[in-house]
Design a protein around this nucleic acid. Structure first.
Lengths: 246, 246
DNA sequence: CAAATCCTAATTGTCAGACATATGAAAATT
DNA sequence: AATTTTCATATGTCTGACAATTAGGATTTG
């Protein structure tokens, strides 16, 4: 593990890369302790500040964790699905909000991936998953629910659907796709009428999963995609009109 | 934006969180300049080291970028799809290699998501995508190709399939699923016979996309999933046997 | 002897001050 | 007017110091 002090890149970036490569390639294994900051200083021939900034970069990616005290230090971290989820969600959300991804594109991706879960979820969903979905459907029917709360419940419903597939890798991959849509969905004003329609479709989905019917689940999801797309396009059209003639 | 100096959490973590929240919630917009380090020190009433470590954490997540010089500073970064890809791949790879995800689970997730791309890719793939796939198929048939190179070409083939869907959000989501499998695939020794079978299935996929047939694409992908699973399970069985009677 | 307490060494977290380096803009020079 | 120089500002790195935390050993105590 060497660095190039004459490189234009920051030393702390180089050091972080070197350590990251060692972790990804398996030279450093889970729970292994890295050398102490002082030892890393000597090894890379840099100051402690530089080493520390490199370690903070790695900690931000959950690649290492640090512990204070006598037997402390930096340890290679076994990244948990939960940590990976939240990183994925942050990245996906920013990606969608900053890169002007169209509502259509985001919606298409989300439902295409969600439909991929349908056959697995139909086959494996537990009673727990169904109960969660029914509970969220009930909440969505409550009068006086704000649009934000309605969207949050919608996310919870769809996560239960995805989790029903019983594949943690899919749950992880889908977390970003489903949750990152929430800011876009929050822009939609849900009328009583549109909520009713969405809830009906949610019921169809829950019923189809209850009956373990993959085709019916996929069909209901496709219908929900079409309807969501309509709602989104209406909002976009209104906004465009408002901008054109204020 | 406030922090709590009496909290057990590190100050640099708290500061990073505060700034991250401001970015995610939209209080800080793309390309906006953050206060200088000195100003942040004053604002949060901490030393410069602490502020800098917080900024390095955010830089590691591509949330900000820094520039030196007179008009330099830290700026809210517009995260690009490329940056998001590589982060996703790093996280996914580690998640799979560190959490003892079974070959079956990873394989199932990958092909389920890939099948979700099939209809879109069948409808939209360009001549470029098809050419890339044909080229990779040709490379895979070259004698003397190492197993690693064969796997790398396999990844390139599948990325072309996914990119053919013409949906950058899906490409981003799938990047992790496809590339993270590579270390697992690299453990497989591909015999001439198994390569032949895989290449034949790749041809089927390319032909189906050429003919814009979604069902045929999905069928070929499912067949490839079954075959990959068989290969993987054989390897795992051999390993188990080798461990049992060394 | 056992248990509780104290002490110590190691390690990370934070701070202050200094200098190096990069960079744009203003000022001076040609 | 064009070029060069200077300068102010900002981040990058280094050094040394001290605080906070923690495990484990040494010491005291019941």
């Amino acid at each position: 593990m060497k660095i190039d002090p004459s490189s234009p890149a920051d030393l702390s970036v180089q050091i972080a890369s070197a350590i990251r490569d060692a972790i990804v390639s398996g030279q450093l294994i889970v729970d292994q302790r890295l050398p102490s900051e002082a030892e890393l200083c000597a090894q890379f021939e840099v100051g402690r500040t530089t080493v520390r900034e490199a370690l903070k970069r790695l900690a931000a990616q959950s690649l290492i964790r640090t512990q204070r005290g006598a037997t402390g230090g930096a340890f290679v971290n076994r990244i948990s699905f939960e940590e990976a989820y939240s990183q994925q969600i942050t990245t996906s959300t920013l990606l969608l909000s900053m890169n002007a991804v169209s509502f259509e594109t985001a919606c298409e991706a989300r439902y295409a991936l969600e439909r991929a879960c349908a056959p697995l979820s139909a086959a494996r969903r537990s009673a727990d998953h169904l109960a969660t979905m029914r509970a969220e459907i009930h909440r969505q029917g409550q009068p006086g629910l704000t649009d934000e709360a309605f969207c949050a419940s919608d996310v919870a419903f769809h996560r239960a659907l995805v989790d029903g597939a019983g594949n943690p890798v899919m749950s992880y991959q889908l977390a970003g796709a489903v949750e990152a849509m929430q800011p876009l969905m929050n822009m939609i004003t849900f009328t009583a009428r549109s909520r009713e329609r969405i809830i009906a479709l949610h019921c169809q989905i829950a019923d189809a999963l209850d009956a373990q019917s993959a085709p019916e689940t996929e069909a209901a999801l496709s219908e929900l995609e079409r309807y969501t797309l309509t709602l989104g396009q209406d909002v976009m059209a209104q906004r465009a009109q408002a901008r054109a003639a204020p």
